[in-house]
Simulated assay, not measured.
Amino acid sequence: MTINYEYNGVSASDSLEAYTEEKLTTLFEHYDFVIRADVFFKTENTSSDETGMICGIRLSAPGPRLFAEASHDTFKESVSETVRELNKQLKKRKDKMKTF
């Protein structure tokens, strides 16, 4: 399991990386065909106070790469929603792989 972090306009945070790794570990354990995760953190000026902290995660697995992104008022909320979306995509990918 390899996790690469990229910060765009955001300072690096060990606690945020630990939280993200904890969330991604469940995906890596449940879907052993996932090889690597690239995690992107960035901020964006928005008119809403409930968005602006963006987390994007790209997973390397057999077939096309999987990607999800979420924007909330905290990075932790963005990470949680992104991981939930990736879990849905991985479930579909695993079901497709079973049919072959």
Results as ranks from 00 to 15, higher is better:
Met1Leu: 05
Met1Cys: 02
Met1Ile: 03
Asn4Met: 03
Asn4Gly: 02
Tyr5Phe: 15
Tyr7Asn: 05
Tyr7Phe: 15
Tyr7Cys: 01
Asn8Arg: 15
Asn8Ser: 10
Gly9Asn: 10
Ala12Ile: 03
Ser13Ala: 04
Ser13Met: 06
Asp14Gln: 12
Asp14Asn: 11
Leu16Cys: 03
Glu17Asn: 13
Ala18Phe: 03
Tyr19Asp: 01
Glu21Cys: 01
Glu21Ser: 13
Glu21Trp: 00
Glu21His: 07
Glu22Ala: 04
Glu22His: 05
Glu22Phe: 00
Leu24Met: 05
Leu24Lys: 05
Thr25Gly: 06
Thr26Arg: 15
Thr26Glu: 13
Leu27Thr: 08
Glu29Pro: 00
His30Val: 03
Tyr31Thr: 02
Asp32Asn: 11
Ile35Phe: 07
Arg36Leu: 06
Ala37Glu: 03
Asp38Thr: 07
Val39Asp: 09
Val39Phe: 05
Phe40Ile: 11
Phe41Ser: 11
Thr43Met: 12
Thr43Trp: 01
Glu44Asn: 08
Asn45Ser: 13
Asn45Cys: 03
Ser47Trp: 00
Ser47Ala: 11
Asp49Lys: 10
Asp49Val: 06
Asp49Phe: 01
Asp49Trp: 06
Asp49Gly: 12
Thr51Phe: 05
Thr51Ser: 15
Met53His: 15
Met53Phe: 14
Cys55Gly: 02
Ile57Cys: 04
Arg58Leu: 06
Leu59Cys: 05
Ser60Asp: 13
Pro62Asn: 10
Pro62Ser: 09
Pro62Trp: 08
Pro62Ala: 07
Pro64Thr: 11
Arg65Glu: 14
Arg65Gly: 03
Arg65Asn: 14
Leu66Gly: 09
Leu66Asn: 08
Phe67His: 13
Ala68Ser: 14
Ala68Trp: 05
Ala68Thr: 05
Glu69Trp: 00
Ser71Asn: 09
Ser71Val: 09
His72Arg: 15
His72Ala: 14
Asp73Lys: 13
Thr74His: 10
Thr74Ser: 15
Phe75Cys: 06
Phe75Thr: 08
Lys76Trp: 02
Lys76Pro: 06
Glu77Val: 00
Glu77Gln: 15
Ser78Asp: 09
Val79Pro: 07
Ser80Pro: 00
Glu81Cys: 08
Val83Asn: 03
Val83Glu: 09
Arg84Cys: 06
Arg84Thr: 12
Glu85Ala: 12
Glu85Cys: 02
Glu85Trp: 00
Glu85Val: 11
Leu86Ala: 05
Lys88Leu: 13
Gln89Phe: 10
Gln89Asp: 12
Gln89Trp: 02
Gln89Pro: 07
Leu90Ala: 09
Leu90Asp: 11
Leu90Lys: 10
Lys91Cys: 02
Lys91Asp: 12
Lys92Asp: 12
Lys92Trp: 07
Arg93Asn: 09
Lys94Ser: 08
Lys94Trp: 02
Lys94Cys: 02
Lys96Gln: 12
Lys98Tyr: 07
Lys98Cys: 01
Thr99Trp: 01
Phe100Glu: 12
